[in-house]
Design a protein around this nucleic acid. Structure first.
Lengths: 208, 208
DNA sequence: AGATGTGAATGAGTTCACAGCT
DNA sequence: AGCTGTGAACTCATTCACATCT
């Protein structure tokens, strides 16, 4: 299993979501074409994407919805429980803690830290905010394995490093900043402003 | 100006952010190489990306930071004011309203609606929540031009259509659902679960 | 000299077309 | 007959290499 492009990976998540929906509708088998039609995907691409990980279908028939959903679930690492620690409990951070906390499934927010003593001690989304100085200890105690960066752009780098140091295995960065990666700690950026700016550009382009 | 790939577009946003940072540091001129080095980008790519929109640099010298920032700012449509209406004022929606409200710049959250009468009337992030039935009226009154979908997956489609109907020019979708596009109303999906699942996969892959 | 802007070369990602299984 | 899985063709994106300008 060489390495998988982020594009493929995103699509696998999408496929899983589509399959979940089919499950709720009681669909048991589906062909790539039918799935493509229903969810506006490409049937060839579905097959190519899946082919990277094995043969999940039955020729002449299609895919078993439950079986494929289970396979993708496992593939994406969702059979492990993932424990998130949020760094920066400002507006964005506390919103994320509350929001992601609900989403349960395989992801749970287990801790939050902030360097502002004012915020330390508050209870948000099922845990008590701790001070950033205690990050390493917090990670150890809660066995958090994913860090969520919700700090201002200026302090993104240092907090990423602190998370890496504290022992998390991956970081999701919401700060609008380019962070230099530690090769051992995968990083994904989620930048809301970029998304908005992309939309803004589209508006300008073709007029109404 | 044919049409621009989303990848290029995202990078333009990144470049703009880098330039803003250079401005705060008082840097007046920068070469593509220096910029690439500082922010972990590719110098060729910077030049190729910019070349799609004109000639912004001075050969032998580099780019004027202020001038280039202004150009990108305009290119991305940030000299217009964009007015956002949030649909679905649950956990995610109200968080977004508060968060995006702060981020000022060219984007302002001017309204929010929800179909739950319980939520109608609350004040969040500078406006009073209105009922979803009034969406068209709200859009007209506030001159909102971008819709933000923060509803459950099941109702994403109908609310996208309602937004299109009500006259917004583009939609940012936070619901984890595949929405069928209206060709007149550009749609961008932001799916936090996909991001988390991508990270989860990376963890599984290489072990620690 | 030094940096931009750009055709040409390479690489990545997607689609086509069909062999092969059920 | 119908649908999967996949090499081959194609399209899109990135990188290279250099002519061009200050």
């Amino acid at each position: 299993m060489d390495d998988v492009s982020p594009l493929t990976l995103n699509r696998l998540s999408v496929y899983l979501r589509c399959l979940r929906r089919l499950q709720t509708e009681g669909v048991q088998r589906i062909s790539s074409q039918e799935m493509a039609r229903r969810f506006h995907l490409s049937s060839t691409q579905i097959r190519k994407d899946l082919a990277q990980f094995g043969e999940f279908g039955i020729r002449g028939v299609g895919y078993d919805v439950d079986a494929l959903a289970d396979s993708l679930h496992g593939l994406l690492g969702l059979d492990r429980e993932h424990r998130l620690v949020v760094v920066g409990m400002g507006n964005l951070g506390s919103s994320l803690a509350r929001y992601l906390g609900f989403n349960s499934g395989s992801f749970h927010v287990v801790a939050g830290v902030d360097k502002d003593p004012e915020k330390v001690g508050r209870e948000i989304g099922g845990f008590v905010v701790r001070h950033s100085d205690k990050l390493e200890q917090v990670v150890r105690e809660t066995r958090a394995n994913i860090g969520v960066l919700a700090v201002p752009a200026e302090s993104a780098q240092e907090n990423y490093e602190a998370l890496a140091e504290a022992g998390v295995e991956a970081v999701l960065n919401f700060a609008p900043a380019r962070v230099t990666r530690d090769p051992r700690v995968p990083l994904k950026n989620v930048d809301l402003r970029i998304q908005l700016e992309e939309l803004a550009f589209m508006l300008g382009e073709d007029g109404e």
